[in-house]
C-alpha cells in the first residue's frame, strides 16, 4: 500500500521525511541539493519532477512573540483548559478541542518546539509532522502535491506550503477571504459610439 503513495522512482522521496524531521531546514535543504546532484549524475532519469523538494517556512511569527521561550521560560506550564488571557489572538476551536489542549502539541519544556506523540521534538518549520499524526491521508496527499499549494517549477525546484500556511492550527478551517470583483457584464461593456 505504501508504494501507492510514495514516488516509485528515485530514492530521494523515500528519504524526504527524514530530512524534514531533523528540524534544521537549511541543512536539510543543502543535503537535498547534494542528493539531487548525486542523483542527477548517478542515475538515468527520464523525468525531472522529483529532483528538488523544498518547504516554505510557515507564517512568520512577529518578534513580539518569538521566540516563545523568552516569556515562557519563567512561566510554569498550565495544562488546565481555560480562556487564555495573554494570547487573546489564539482561539482553539473546531479542532477536537474537547480531546486536546495546548500542551498536546506544544512542548511544555521547550516552548520553541513542537512535541510529537512519540516524544520527538520538531521545530515550527516542520509543523506538518504534527498534523500528520491525525491527518495521515491528507498529509500523504500534501506530500505528493495533490493537496496544498506549491509554487516554483513544475519540473524541478518547487516550494511546498506547510499546512499552517493555509490552516490556522488552532482554528484550521480555511478562513474566508474577500473575493476579487466579478467580471463586467456584457451589457455594461457596451460602448456604443452612436449614442
Amino acid at each position: 500500500m505504501e508504494s501507492f503513495f510514495l514516488f516509485k522512482r528515485g530514492i530521494l522521496p523515500r528519504l524526504l521525511p527524514h530530512f524534514l524531521g531533523n528540524g534544521n531546514l537549511r541543512l536539510s535543504s543543502l543535503v537535498v541539493v547534494l542528493f539531487c546532484l548525486i542523483q542527477l549524475f548517478g542515475t538515468i532519469r527520464s523525468y525531472s519532477s522529483e529532483t528538488e523538494f523544498f518547504v516554505v517556512p510557515p507564517v512568520a511569527f512577529s518578534s513580539d512573540y518569538f521566540p516563545c521561550s523568552e516569556c515562557h521560560k519563567d512561566l510554569e506550564a498550565n495544562p488546565e483548559k481555560r480562556n487564555l488571557h495573554q494570547h487573546t489572538e489564539i482561539v482553539y476551536k473546531d479542532h477536537a478541542e474537547d480531546e486536546r489542549w495546548c500542551l498536546d502539541c506544544h512542548d511544555p519544556a521547550d516552548r520553541d518546539k513542537l512535541l510529537l506523540t512519540t516524544g520527538e521534538k520538531v521545530g515550527f518549520d516542520a509543523s506538518h509532522k504534527i498534523c500528520w499524526q491525525c491527518h495521515g491521508s491528507l498529509h500523504n496527499d500534501w506530500q505528493h502535491g495533490i493537496h496544498g499549494k506549491r509554487i516554483g517549477n513544475w519540473d524541478g525546484r518547487k516550494q511546498y506550503y506547510l499546512c499552517a500556511a493555509c490552516h490556522n492550527p488552532h482554528t484550521p478551517a480555511f478562513r474566508p477571504i474577500t473575493p476579487e470583483p466579478p467580471p463586467v457584464a456584457p451589457e455594461k461593456t457596451l460602448k456604443r459610439r452612436d449614442k
Partner: peptide, 12 residues
Amino acid sequence: EGLVVANMREQV
C-alpha cells in the same frame, strides 16, 4: 475602433 461598436460580445 474595432468590433466593439457592434453589440456582439464574448457571450454572443
